[in-house]
Design a protein around this nucleic acid. Structure first.
Lengths: 118, 118
DNA sequence: CTAATATATGAACAGTCATTCATATGTTTG
DNA sequence: CAAACATATGAATGACTGTTCATATATTAG
């Protein structure tokens, strides 16, 4: 494994470029966190939930009916969205209303849609 | 399952809001494609590759050494990135150089980083 | 307090996915 | 043509993840 990389390194690697890129690369932890963020967006159920929250604050039950999902499935996904700080709960008696956490969510989704619509 | 939703629908759903949101919701296929796009970003190896390509055009071997991965792993991931139209190949003899497909990639990643850095 | 209700959570199962290993394809050099 | 090399690909495996089912927690109504 390591030997493979070494062998390749002596033959085809463009060393200067590699060195320069390596300096500019963010810390591994940042890149990992970034991937985790995108992973949260990378599920159609969660995307639907986020898109629904574009329009209005909704309770768990609203979302379930809206998307034809069970309450449990929605609750599990809201948990993921909450952990990713994409969504924020507001408790009112028995019901919990969810809304988008901040405008990054809107921007990111809009930007993604642009790429898809091409 | 359906019964659950019905039962819930008669009790706690905010019908007006749900109806309005439903009208604004994009087509299922669009939402699915959007999730697929984000799924491609949702892996730390692929994020690293994309970030590396921020700085320079790189060949498969460069990327492998840069990130300490096998040639095969990199090639497999480049295939995914290419399928998502995030990356573009340029062939030059034996070697294949990859670069970012368009500026959406930069924008999306930058936007994501902003959210992470908070 | 008890029943009803809205949401949350844990375990289990099925499907997905990233990596590895072996090998194939395509290109250049001698 | 044959050998060397850069990249691509297929199959197998282990890890992860979304949904379901059952149940727990929390709040309100009677």
């Amino acid at each position: 494994m390591d030997a493979d990389i070494e062998r390749c390194g002596f033959l085809c690697v463009h060393e200067d470029t590699v060195k320069q890129v390596l300096e500019q690369l963010p810390a591994d932890e940042k890149l990992y966190d970034l991937a985790e963020l995108f992973k949260v967006f990378g599920d159609s159920t969660r995307i639907k939930i986020l898109y629904a929250l574009f329009e209005a604050e909704l309770c768990v039950c609203d979302i379930a009916q809206l998307l034809g999902l069970t309450q449990s499935a929605v609750s599990h996904q809201l948990r993921v969205l909450k952990a990713g700080r994409l969504v924020r709960p507001r408790k009112d008696g028995k019901t919990v209303f969810y809304s988008l956490a901040d405008d990054h969510v809107r921007t990111l989704i809009a930007q993604g849609m642009e790429h898809v619509n091409e």
